[in-house]
Design a protein around this nucleic acid. Structure first.
Length: 813
RNA sequence: GUCGGCGUGGCGGAAUGGCAGACGCGCCAGCCUUAGGAGCUGGUGCCCGAAAGGGCGUGGAGGUUCAAAUCCUCUCGCCGACACCA
């Protein structure tokens, strides 16, 4: 990055602060709640205020700003708000590193810094609507929403295995466990403990979250696939296997392949399965106990190791296969998870890879019950999981496996031995965090009344000013029961910060509302978000949770929409020297550096031109110089046309007029499709044409001024400071931001002459300049006049002619 | 392992069935300049050729089509997500 004097009069450092001040004073991006215009809600994911804003992070904010500025000029009432995901761990880390620094001080300081940097990039927001999730006027309503979920039966308390640091004697959030070790004690392994935790019942919404993905046709397919996989709905059956020797005791399993029931040669229980103890026989008890204890203690380190060989142990117990009465041994193995399905499986080694591996390891029976279409049965070298015909399956033998699934389920249901079942990979959302810097959970534990929600009128439960674990702060947790007035204890866990971010986009509709989280009427007016821009790292968590919240609020009658984000876009990251730009890595370019060197406008255009918006891109100073040159050139064209040498004559106003119209169409379309890189390219082409026009002596053409005005307007969303300045200098009235966006005129853009490509047998042989809209017969005649074409045809006549008007004619010999 | 995505000049990339390489960077030549990391003009996919011209060309191999970077099949390479979910 360097700074140097310019020959032209374009000095961004002088004009940029000037216009930023004007926009702020005139409230250019203020959204009106009572506008007759159509609305456009343009949202970028609100960031964590890390104090590390680089021009890399600014890229998606520039995208949002470009769209907001164009939509505004197009006559939309644009809502373009900003806020801060201000609760969270890094604030506590920073506070801890810096001794006496309070997380709030650090957070609010970073917010001020970030705001200044966004403003100096020329990015406009309606700052009157700013939300900050760590402020009581915001988190009061996060607490309120918790109570709403609680009332609706969607918040519950349950035992859950959590991460426990034996040195700190505290629970750790998943994010605080690094490679199975405590983040503060890299030599201490985290233990598993069962503790009471709060959950949100997102699984109640699994079907709707999955099915409604089909409505999100303007979301990247990738994100929809990821959410589909995350929810992981599967269809199958639960089947009861009576335990031999234990009256009325059955092991219930879940399977997606009821058609392979006859191939079940053993069963496997998860180590945590409640029946393990009763099923285990005395002679196996010691070994089972040892295995179960080892499995339960298995640290994250072991869990993370991929491809570890399957282990397990026999219980000595047997169960009866309900379809054929066969007795099969029951094993315990940690490859079966207590948290999915019923925590128990029937093992069909012939047709399941995991069961196959286990059977091979322990020498268990393998029986084929699905015959592959064109392959012989016999010694299986691996599990066969493909389609086929049922064999060795009693009355079901001969059925196609797909049909068999349905028939077996019907039979099980008729016999009362099983039933159809749907399972999900999605688990309920554990929202308790043992952290100070988060939103308090508004619950009181009373010795008499048990779990008592804090009455809405008593909200917010304020986070104490003193930075100290809530569970060690009696002035916080000592309270009285809202019901009976007895001494009681407050919940000392705080909420996962993903809850804060699951509804912030609704708060923007009525950020100063004091009686409820948001004004439903205003929320309904602005929602859904028309364009949501943010990183793909939130493809699952934030976006799934926000969809969940929206559906709950819809069901509660507070919100008309049931999906929050109409169109989603995931921008790529900006790298420098091969790594993602960041202050801590030392490869970041700060907005201050950028503005001092080439100006915010050059930086903005560069970030849009650097590559496709969804791709990761590499920042280079040379590339930045290129767009800086482009702006210098535009400046000279508009402000100092006399500095451009006139070398000739023959400027064609028709060419200029068409180019202006074509560029208007391209830029508008590309902005709408967020294809900023090609929009910039189109503007560069227009500038090139205009420069050519000047050099041919066209400066006094009546078309020239119109071309200049259109160029400035089309450039405005990308480089608003220089655009405003040029607009003012050419005598434009008022602010450019208040001007209307140029309208595409297809007739004006139409070329009267086109290049017709002539192919012979699909190979390019000549190019002809012809009138647009030429009929096939005339085109053929013109093509046949070409010597090159005649030579390629070898004097013969074409046997077939393919004519695409205004594009090509293909003569097939 | 499963699922998804991507492979185009020296580089970033354009073109989504119809002129491959728009636009920019870099590079080469020239002009201008006291000077150039400024500006302007022209050139710049590869190969053969002095040129005219010709041939080849979108990771590789096949296929569909009058026509393929684009659609299909296989394959190689890179990247991402989930990773024992029965």
């Amino acid at each position: 990055m360097e700074s140097r004097s310019r020959r032209s009069g374009y000095i961004p450092q002088e004009i940029e602060p000037k216009w930023q001040k004007v926009w702020a004073e005139r409230g250019v991006m203020k959204a009106s709640d009572s506008s007759p215009k159509p609305k456009f809600y343009d949202l970028v994911m609100y960031p964590y205020p890390s104090g590390d804003l680089t021009v890399g992070h600014a890229r998606n904010y520039v995208m949002g700003d470009v769209l907001a500025r164009m939509k505004r000029m197009q006559g939309f009432e644009v809502l373009h708000p900003f806020g801060w995901d201000a609760f969270g761990l890094p604030a506590e880390n920073a506070a801890m590193k810096r001794g006496n620094l309070h997380p709030e001080t650090w957070t609010l300081g970073n917010i001020e810094k970030g705001k200044r940097e966004l403003k100096m990039m020329g990015i406009l927001y309606d700052w009157d609507r700013e939300v900050t999730s760590c402020m009581p006027d915001y988190y009061k309503w996060t607490e309120w929403l918790f109570l709403l979920f609680y009332e609706r039966g969607l918040a519950y308390r349950a035992m859950a295995p959590v991460n426990w640091c034996p040195v700190d004697k505290t629970v750790l959030a998943n994010e605080q466990v690094i490679n199975g070790r405590c983040w503060r004690h890299p030599d201490v392994e985290v233990e598993k403990r069962d503790l009471e935790q709060w959950f949100f019942k997102i699984t109640d919404y699994a079907d709707r979250l999955l099915d409604d993905l089909a409505l999100l046709d303007k979301w990247p397919n990738k994100v929809r696939v990821m959410q589909t996989n995350w929810i992981g709905r599967s269809h199958g059956a639960e089947v009861d296997f009576p335990v031999v020797g234990l009256d009325n005791e059955t092991v219930r399993i879940y399977t997606t392949r009821p058609d392979t029931l006859f191939g079940a040669t053993f069963m496997v229980l998860a180590p945590e399965h409640p029946l393990v103890e009763r099923i285990t026989t005395d002679e196996h008890r010691a070994r089972v106990k040892e295995y179960v204890e080892k499995a339960r203690k298995a640290s994250e380190i072991d869990r993370l190791s991929t491809e570890h060989a399957k282990t397990g142990v026999a219980t000595g117990g047997f169960a009866v296969n309900p379809v054929n009465g066969e007795e099969v041994p029951i094993w315990v193995a940690d490859y079966v998870l207590m948290t999915y399905g019923t925590g128990a499986i029937m093992a069909v080694p012939a047709h399941d890879e995991r069961d196959f591996e286990f059977a091979k390891t322990y020498g268990l029976a393998i029986r084929e019950v699905i015959a592959p279409p064109d392959a012989p049965q016999g010694d299986l070298r691996e599990a066969y999981v493909g389609p086929g015909v049922m064999v060795n399956s009693g009355q079901f033998s001969g059925l196609d496996a797909a049909t068999g699934i349905e028939r077996v389920i019907a039979w099980l249901e008729a016999q009362g031995k099983g039933k159809r079942a749907v399972k999900y990979r999605l688990r309920d959302w554990l929202i308790s965090r043992q952290r100070y810097w988060g939103c308090p959970i508004p619950i009181v534990y009373c010795p008499t009344d048990g779990i008592v929600p804090v009455p809405a009128a008593d909200l917010p439960v304020l986070l104490p000013k003193e930075y100290k674990a809530l569970s060690e702060n009696p002035s916080f947790f000592e309270t009285t029961c809202p019901k009976c007035g007895q001494v009681a204890r407050r919940e000392t866990d705080t909420m996962d910060t993903f809850i804060d971010s699951s509804w912030y986009f609704l708060r923007y509709a009525s950020p100063h509302e004091t009686t409820r989280p948001f004004d439903s009427e205003l929320a309904n007016q602005w929602m859904p978000v028309d364009q949501y821009t943010g990183g793909v790292e939130h493809a699952i968590l934030h976006l799934l949770y926000s969809r969940f919240f929206t559906k709950v609020l819809h069901d509660a009658g507070l919100l008309a929409v049931s999906e929050p984000f109409t169109r989603l876009f995931n921008q790529g990251m900006v790298k420098r020297f091969g790594q993602v730009m960041s202050k801590s890595l030392g490869n970041g370019v700060s907005p201050d550096e950028l503005v001092a060197a080439q100006g915010a406008d050059a930086g903005r255009i560069y970030e849009m031109f650097i590559g496709p918006p969804e791709e990761d891109v590499e920042w280079t100073d040379a590339g930045l110089n290129g767009v800086s040159r482009f702006l210098q050139r535009v400046w000279r064209l508009v402000i100092e046309p006399s500095t451009i040498v006139v070398e000739g004559s023959g400027a064609d106003v028709a060419v200029l007029r068409r180019k202006v119209a074509q560029t208007t169409g391209k830029v508008t379309e590309h902005f709408d499709e967020l294809r900023f890189n090609t929009a910039v390219a189109a503007l560069m082409e227009l500038a090139n044409t205009m420069q050519d026009h000047l050099q041919r002596g066209g400066a006094r053409d009546p078309e020239w001024d119109g071309a200049v005005r259109t160029l400035i307007k089309l450039l405005n969303p990308l480089a608003p400071h220089v655009a405003e300045e040029m607009w003012e200098r050419i005598g434009g009235r008022g602010m450019l931001a208040d001007e209307s966006w140029p309208v595409f005129d297809p007739a004006a853009a139409a070329e009267p002459k086109v290049t017709l490509v002539v192919q012979v047998g699909g190979k390019l042989r000549d190019r002809l300049t012809v009138d647009a809209g030429l009929a096939e017969a005339a085109a053929l005649e013109a093509a046949m006049r070409s010597e090159k074409v005649r030579a390629a045809l070898n004097g013969g006549a074409p046997s077939k002619i393919v004519y695409v008007q205004d594009r090509l004619i293909n003569l097939v010999p």
